[in-house]
Design a protein around this nucleic acid. Structure first.
Length: 208
DNA sequence: CGGAAGATCCACT
DNA sequence: GTGGATCTTCCGA
Protein backbone atom coordinates (compact mmCIF):
# COMPACT_ATOMS: atom_id res chain seq x y z
CA UNK A 1 0.00 0.00 0.00
CA UNK A 2 1.07 3.55 -0.56
CA UNK A 3 2.64 5.09 2.48
CA UNK A 4 2.25 8.61 1.20
CA UNK A 5 -1.51 8.26 1.42
CA UNK A 6 -1.47 7.46 5.13
CA UNK A 7 -2.76 10.87 6.13
CA UNK A 8 -4.47 10.92 9.54
CA UNK A 9 -8.04 12.16 9.61
CA UNK A 10 -8.08 15.65 11.16
CA UNK A 11 -9.62 16.31 14.55
CA UNK A 12 -12.46 18.22 12.88
CA UNK A 13 -13.65 14.95 11.32
CA UNK A 14 -14.58 13.63 14.76
CA UNK A 15 -16.20 16.76 16.18
CA UNK A 16 -19.57 15.91 14.64
CA UNK A 17 -22.55 13.77 15.69
CA UNK A 18 -21.62 10.11 16.28
CA UNK A 19 -23.87 8.80 13.53
CA UNK A 20 -22.10 10.91 10.91
CA UNK A 21 -18.71 9.89 12.22
CA UNK A 22 -19.67 6.19 12.23
CA UNK A 23 -20.79 6.31 8.61
CA UNK A 24 -17.75 8.36 7.66
CA UNK A 25 -15.29 5.92 9.22
CA UNK A 26 -16.28 3.04 6.94
CA UNK A 27 -13.54 2.44 4.37
CA UNK A 28 -10.88 4.29 6.37
CA UNK A 29 -7.64 2.76 7.55
CA UNK A 30 -7.04 1.87 11.17
CA UNK A 31 -3.26 1.92 11.50
CA UNK A 32 -1.31 0.35 14.35
CA UNK A 33 2.44 0.74 14.62
CA UNK A 34 3.21 -2.31 16.73
CA UNK A 35 5.95 -2.49 19.33
CA UNK A 36 7.84 -5.05 17.23
CA UNK A 37 8.18 -2.44 14.47
CA UNK A 38 5.57 -3.95 12.19
CA UNK A 39 2.74 -1.89 10.82
CA UNK A 40 -0.75 -3.36 10.95
CA UNK A 41 -3.55 -1.90 8.86
CA UNK A 42 -7.25 -2.71 8.88
CA UNK A 43 -9.84 -1.24 6.56
CA UNK A 44 -12.82 -0.34 8.78
CA UNK A 45 -15.96 -2.14 7.54
CA UNK A 46 -18.34 -1.98 10.53
CA UNK A 47 -19.00 0.60 13.24
CA UNK A 48 -21.70 1.55 15.73
CA UNK A 49 -22.69 4.98 17.03
CA UNK A 50 -23.38 5.57 20.74
CA UNK A 51 -25.01 8.90 21.40
CA UNK A 52 -24.18 9.63 25.02
CA UNK A 53 -26.65 10.80 27.69
CA UNK A 54 -29.91 10.24 25.73
CA UNK A 55 -28.82 6.74 24.63
CA UNK A 56 -29.63 3.96 27.12
CA UNK A 57 -27.10 1.67 25.40
CA UNK A 58 -24.24 4.14 25.86
CA UNK A 59 -21.75 3.94 28.69
CA UNK A 60 -22.61 7.61 29.15
CA UNK A 61 -26.38 6.95 29.42
CA UNK A 62 -28.07 9.54 31.59
CA UNK A 63 -24.81 11.42 31.90
CA UNK A 64 -23.21 8.61 33.89
CA UNK A 65 -19.61 9.51 34.55
CA UNK A 66 -17.11 7.27 36.34
CA UNK A 67 -13.39 6.59 36.39
CA UNK A 68 -13.90 3.86 33.81
CA UNK A 69 -15.61 5.98 31.15
CA UNK A 70 -13.83 9.25 31.80
CA UNK A 71 -12.13 9.36 28.39
CA UNK A 72 -15.53 9.06 26.74
CA UNK A 73 -16.02 12.70 27.70
CA UNK A 74 -12.90 13.88 25.92
CA UNK A 75 -13.29 15.90 22.71
CA UNK A 76 -13.74 14.01 19.45
CA UNK A 77 -10.57 12.43 18.06
CA UNK A 78 -9.48 10.43 21.09
CA UNK A 79 -9.78 6.73 21.87
CA UNK A 80 -12.09 5.24 24.49
CA UNK A 81 -10.92 1.69 25.26
CA UNK A 82 -12.69 -0.46 27.82
CA UNK A 83 -12.35 -3.99 29.17
CA UNK A 84 -15.41 -6.24 29.02
CA UNK A 85 -16.55 -9.78 29.93
CA UNK A 86 -13.35 -10.41 31.81
CA UNK A 87 -11.28 -10.89 28.66
CA UNK A 88 -11.92 -8.51 25.81
CA UNK A 89 -11.07 -4.94 24.94
CA UNK A 90 -13.20 -2.69 22.73
CA UNK A 91 -12.03 0.40 20.85
CA UNK A 92 -14.13 3.53 20.34
CA UNK A 93 -13.42 6.80 18.58
CA UNK A 94 -14.83 9.62 20.71
CA UNK A 95 -17.01 11.99 18.68
CA UNK A 96 -18.55 15.42 19.15
CA UNK A 97 -17.43 18.11 21.54
CA UNK A 98 -15.83 17.76 24.94
CA UNK A 99 -18.26 16.57 27.59
CA UNK A 100 -20.87 15.06 25.23
CA UNK A 101 -19.95 11.42 25.83
CA UNK A 102 -20.73 10.18 22.32
CA UNK A 103 -18.50 7.71 20.48
CA UNK A 104 -18.17 5.19 17.68
CA UNK A 105 -17.42 1.54 18.45
CA UNK A 106 -15.14 0.01 15.82
CA UNK A 107 -16.63 -3.45 15.32
CA UNK A 108 -14.83 -4.98 12.36
CA UNK A 109 -11.97 -4.50 9.93
CA UNK A 110 -10.62 -6.12 6.79
CA UNK A 111 -6.88 -6.92 6.89
CA UNK A 112 -4.87 -4.74 4.50
CA UNK A 113 -1.31 -4.96 5.79
CA UNK A 114 0.35 -7.22 8.38
CA UNK A 115 -2.30 -9.92 8.23
CA UNK A 116 0.17 -12.66 9.20
CA UNK A 117 1.03 -10.72 12.33
CA UNK A 118 -2.65 -10.27 13.14
CA UNK A 119 -3.39 -13.98 12.73
CA UNK A 120 -0.53 -14.75 15.05
CA UNK A 121 -1.93 -12.44 17.72
CA UNK A 122 -5.35 -14.00 17.24
CA UNK A 123 -4.00 -17.51 17.67
CA UNK A 124 -5.03 -18.52 14.15
CA UNK A 125 -1.60 -19.66 12.98
CA UNK A 126 -1.84 -22.52 10.54
CA UNK A 127 -5.57 -22.88 11.00
CA UNK A 128 -8.12 -22.48 8.30
CA UNK A 129 -9.27 -18.87 8.44
CA UNK A 130 -12.61 -17.57 7.24
CA UNK A 131 -13.48 -13.92 6.63
CA UNK A 132 -14.26 -12.30 9.95
CA UNK A 133 -11.99 -14.57 12.00
CA UNK A 134 -9.13 -12.05 12.09
CA UNK A 135 -10.92 -8.83 13.03
CA UNK A 136 -14.66 -9.46 12.60
CA UNK A 137 -15.79 -8.30 16.03
CA UNK A 138 -14.78 -5.56 18.46
CA UNK A 139 -12.81 -7.91 20.71
CA UNK A 140 -11.12 -9.64 17.79
CA UNK A 141 -10.20 -6.30 16.25
CA UNK A 142 -8.42 -5.20 19.43
CA UNK A 143 -6.62 -8.51 19.82
CA UNK A 144 -5.48 -8.49 16.18
CA UNK A 145 -4.00 -5.01 16.58
CA UNK A 146 -2.66 -5.46 20.12
CA UNK A 147 -4.90 -2.73 21.48
CA UNK A 148 -5.32 -2.73 25.25
CA UNK A 149 -6.18 -0.39 28.07
CA UNK A 150 -3.00 1.60 27.54
CA UNK A 151 -4.70 3.28 24.59
CA UNK A 152 -7.63 4.57 26.62
CA UNK A 153 -7.61 8.34 26.12
CA UNK A 154 -4.93 8.28 23.42
CA UNK A 155 -5.24 10.50 20.33
CA UNK A 156 -6.27 8.92 17.03
CA UNK A 157 -4.72 11.60 14.78
CA UNK A 158 -1.09 10.86 15.69
CA UNK A 159 0.97 8.24 17.48
CA UNK A 160 1.11 4.41 17.34
CA UNK A 161 -2.64 4.08 16.81
CA UNK A 162 -4.35 6.29 14.28
CA UNK A 163 -7.07 6.41 11.67
CA UNK A 164 -5.98 7.46 8.20
CA UNK A 165 -8.03 8.74 5.31
CA UNK A 166 -8.64 5.95 2.84
CA UNK A 167 -11.44 5.80 0.31
CA UNK A 168 -14.70 6.31 2.25
CA UNK A 169 -17.52 3.87 1.48
CA UNK A 170 -20.18 5.47 -0.74
CA UNK A 171 -23.43 6.29 1.13
CA UNK A 172 -25.49 3.86 -0.95
CA UNK A 173 -23.09 1.05 -0.07
CA UNK A 174 -23.68 1.50 3.66
CA UNK A 175 -26.15 -0.84 5.36
CA UNK A 176 -27.75 0.16 8.68
CA UNK A 177 -29.40 -1.87 11.43
CA UNK A 178 -29.84 -2.23 15.19
CA UNK A 179 -26.74 -2.45 17.34
CA UNK A 180 -25.38 -5.73 18.69
CA UNK A 181 -25.68 -6.80 22.31
CA UNK A 182 -27.79 -3.94 23.61
CA UNK A 183 -31.18 -5.67 24.02
CA UNK A 184 -31.37 -4.34 27.57
CA UNK A 185 -31.49 -0.72 26.36
CA UNK A 186 -35.26 -0.47 25.86
CA UNK A 187 -36.30 1.81 23.04
CA UNK A 188 -32.69 2.61 22.12
CA UNK A 189 -32.04 -1.07 21.33
CA UNK A 190 -33.94 -0.67 18.06
CA UNK A 191 -32.24 2.49 16.87
CA UNK A 192 -30.47 1.79 13.53
CA UNK A 193 -27.03 2.94 14.61
CA UNK A 194 -25.00 -0.02 13.38
CA UNK A 195 -23.35 0.56 10.03
CA UNK A 196 -21.43 -1.77 7.75
CA UNK A 197 -20.27 -1.93 4.18
CA UNK A 198 -22.96 -3.75 2.23
CA UNK A 199 -22.00 -7.33 1.39
CA UNK A 200 -18.60 -7.24 3.08
CA UNK A 201 -17.74 -10.66 4.51
CA UNK A 202 -15.44 -9.39 7.24
CA UNK A 203 -18.22 -7.93 9.39
CA UNK A 204 -18.97 -9.45 12.79
CA UNK A 205 -22.43 -10.70 11.82
CA UNK A 206 -23.26 -10.77 8.11
CA UNK A 207 -26.97 -10.36 8.85
CA UNK A 208 -27.89 -6.73 8.98
C1' DC B 1 -19.28 -5.33 51.11
C1' DG B 2 -21.71 -8.57 48.03
C1' DG B 3 -23.77 -9.52 43.86
C1' DA B 4 -25.07 -8.96 39.28
C1' DA B 5 -24.31 -7.74 34.62
C1' DG B 6 -21.68 -6.69 30.76
C1' DA B 7 -21.11 -2.56 23.47
C1' DT B 8 -17.73 -10.70 23.53
C1' DC B 9 -15.78 -14.92 21.87
C1' DC B 10 -15.28 -19.82 21.41
C1' DA B 11 -16.31 -24.67 21.60
C1' DC B 12 -19.69 -27.85 21.38
C1' DT B 13 -24.18 -30.14 19.94
C1' DG C 1 -28.35 -22.39 19.04
C1' DT C 2 -26.55 -22.75 23.71
C1' DG C 3 -23.68 -22.11 27.53
C1' DG C 4 -19.18 -21.28 29.82
C1' DA C 5 -15.02 -18.46 30.49
C1' DT C 6 -13.38 -14.66 33.29
C1' DC C 7 -13.03 -10.18 35.99
C1' DT C 8 -13.81 -5.30 36.35
C1' DT C 9 -17.05 -2.01 37.51
C1' DC C 10 -20.93 -0.23 39.65
C1' DC C 11 -24.87 0.11 42.58
C1' DG C 12 -27.62 -1.02 46.40
C1' DA C 13 -27.83 -2.38 51.21
Amino acid sequence: MKTERLTPLPVAFYRRPAEEVARGLLGRWLVRQADDGRRLVLRIVEAEAYLGAPDAASHAAGGRRTARNESLYRPGGYAYVYFIYGMHFCLNAVSGRRGVGSAVLLRAGEPVEGEASMRERRGLDGRRVRPGDVAGGPGKLCQALAIGGAFDGAPLYRGPLLIASGEPVAPDEVAAGPRIGVAYAGEAAAWPLRFAERGNRHVSRPRL
